[in-house]
Design a protein around this nucleic acid. Structure first.
Lengths: 110, 110
DNA sequence: ATATTATATTCTTATATAACCATATGGTAA
DNA sequence: TTACCATATGGTTATATAAGAATATAATAT
């Protein structure tokens, strides 16, 4: 009972997760909050970006289901909701290394 | 000897990998070529999209370092270059399921 | 040489995303 | 109440990405 539309929808939902992770600041945020929850203020300081922008990045990561938040007084604390996301990073580093290495190989051929 | 600029650059390179995976058609392609290499024609048929678009998606995935290609006669075969990418999918499905489930929980509260 | 097939590229247009600045909300303290 | 602090949202503009159609390349076959 799985129709074409369902499959399309599922691929789109998956793609959204990757899109949420496709920004350097958001990756930095995810890594930062992965060990323990952090307030927006802490995150803003850590990533050295504009507060309003960080706020939007956080909202996006939350909407994607990657982070969750918790209000306490004036502060809002964000934390990693799905910890397996951290496993991506090892693999991504492998891709990055392979790519950088292939560039070096090219340089040597000039 | 790792300066701020290097760190920024590394996060950007990582983000590029995720960006490459942030499109439903590209995800479908990656999955399709993960077991064995496929020609562009086969891929076009499988994903049911326009050839010129698929070609662009393939170029992007190759540029990101996720796929590699091989020419044989008239055909070009693409295959998954970094197999650990497939491990992402289990985790991504987990995120998607959690998200869908939280929507169901919301529906029941209306 | 010409024709054919597979794939890639160019161009245009629509849409999405990001950054920046200003303003708004929502708790807390005085 | 007013003032203050942390965070979020709105508006604008610049830039990036996507889709579609047309054209170009490159390998093979005739």
């Amino acid at each position: 009972m799985t129709c074409d539309k369902d499959i399309e929808k599922i691929y789109s939902l998956r793609a959204e997760i990757f899109k949420a992770l496709s920004h350097p600041i958001r990756l930095k945020i995810v890594e930062y909050v992965s060990k323990e929850e952090k307030s927006v203020g802490e995150i803003v300081k850590y990533v050295e970006a504009e507060a309003s922008g960080v706020s939007r990045h956080l909202a996006l990561l939350k909407k994607a289901g990657i982070l969750s938040d918790r209000k306490e007084g004036l502060n809002i604390y964000y934390r990693l909701e799905i910890s397996c996301v951290m496993d991506f990073f090892t693999c991504v580093n492998k891709v990055v290394r392979t790519k950088l290495k292939s560039n070096i190989d090219l340089i040597e051929k000039i």
